Simulated scan of single mutants.
Amino acid sequence: MSVRSIAIALAVVTMASLSGSQAAPQGFGGLGSAAEGFSVPRPGLLFRFPEDHGAHPDFRIEWWYLTANLEAPDGTQYGARWTLFRSALAPGEAKGWSSPQIWMGHAAVTTAKDHFVAERISRGGVGQAGVVAEPFSAWIDDWQMKGVAAPGADQLAALTLNATAKNFGYELHVSAKGPLVSQGKNGYSVKSAQGQASYYYSQPFYTVSGSLALPTGNVGVTGKAWLDREWSSQPLAADQTGWDWFSLHLDSGEKLMGFRLRDKGEGFTSATWITADGRPEPLPAGALQIAPVRTAKVAGRQIPVSWSLRIPGRGFDVTTRPLNDQAWMATSIPYWEGPITFSGSVGGRGYLEMTGY
């Protein structure tokens, strides 16, 4: 059995345990399971950069998550994403096969007719995957997100990204036109009434240029992108079954991040309004109202693919539409994620992720 096969086998076992196969409630993907032995987020943290762009191995779960709304010269719309997840069997890091860290990469390109998906899995400690804060680099196999910022600039101010798979690939360059943004209260993002939380910041001000490699040929694209950085050890309550998460680029220049975590009741919502110059304004609990508008049959299940988003206190009232109803991520832990447009009180584009359906 090859080293890579062993790594994949170990990772699959880990992901199966994280997917909630235990008898006790664990929340979606096991993210509601106990955080015993791991560090947990506390209010009052001040982010440290560039250090916090790197990994936090004493926390159980972490991700580097970029989504891009893209357009070809003829106006055809696309979506692309590059994500690296870190999940720990135990807190801390070690060299070689003693490392308790599991890494998983997801890449996707979405068109109006197709949704291309690829997944990579690696054991930590052997160089196959990882993150370095400065000079910034995140990778798994030959997929890479690399910092190319000018001297003295934030390490995430400019990045190149690439991913290749059987039926698709891409090379993208992103450049930030605004500051990093803390989500929640100064980066402390509460996820439930019981107080589960994560550390969370974003870079929602990227412009993008690059190319997509599709079965029909290469396509030059430009657009906007959004990077999320988040880490925790128990980000969900045990009874939370999944989430509906939105990142929106408003035509006005403003941004909105909002999510609903589902449970047996009304769920838990949170949102941050981001001004055009990058000032985050956390909204009060319940200020964002999220309701499904249309469902579609996806991967054998009914999933809400169009949504109503309202913030009455701001006069914000929009309806979202997916580029492709079938943006299903058929990965180890499957979920829906794809580009959306929206219209109503304001127009724009963004991304929607839905888990637990």
Rank of each mutant, 00 (worst) to 15 (best):
P235V: 07
G37D: 10
K255A: 05
E93N: 10
I140W: 03
T207H: 10
K264V: 12
G258L: 15
Q144P: 00
W82K: 02
D317H: 12
G147C: 07
M257T: 09
W103D: 01
K191V: 09
K166A: 15
A94E: 12
A150K: 14
G253H: 03
A299L: 09
A330E: 13
K297F: 08
W103T: 00
A9S: 14
S19D: 14
F342R: 03
M257L: 15
A157E: 09
Y78N: 06
P304W: 07
A157C: 06
S247G: 12
F268I: 07
A149N: 10
A225T: 02
D74E: 13
V190A: 08
Q22N: 11
A23N: 10
V40F: 04
A149F: 02
P73S: 14
L180H: 00
R294V: 14
G125N: 08
E119G: 06
D317A: 14
V219A: 04
G313H: 06
A138I: 02
S198D: 04
D142L: 07
W328G: 03
N69V: 06
A68P: 00
T164F: 10
S21T: 14
I61P: 00
S17T: 13
P215M: 10
F342M: 09
W143E: 09
S211H: 13
F205G: 00
W97N: 06
G147K: 03
A150G: 10
N218W: 03
D239V: 06
F268P: 01
K264I: 11
G37P: 06
L70I: 07
R48I: 08
D325C: 08
A23C: 06
Q234E: 11
L70F: 05
G258I: 02
P282W: 01
A299N: 12
L309S: 10
T241H: 08
Y357N: 08
S137H: 12
R349T: 15
V126Q: 13
L250F: 04
D263F: 04
P282I: 02
S332F: 05
F38R: 06
A90F: 10
I340L: 15
P25Y: 13
T319A: 13
G278H: 00
V181C: 00
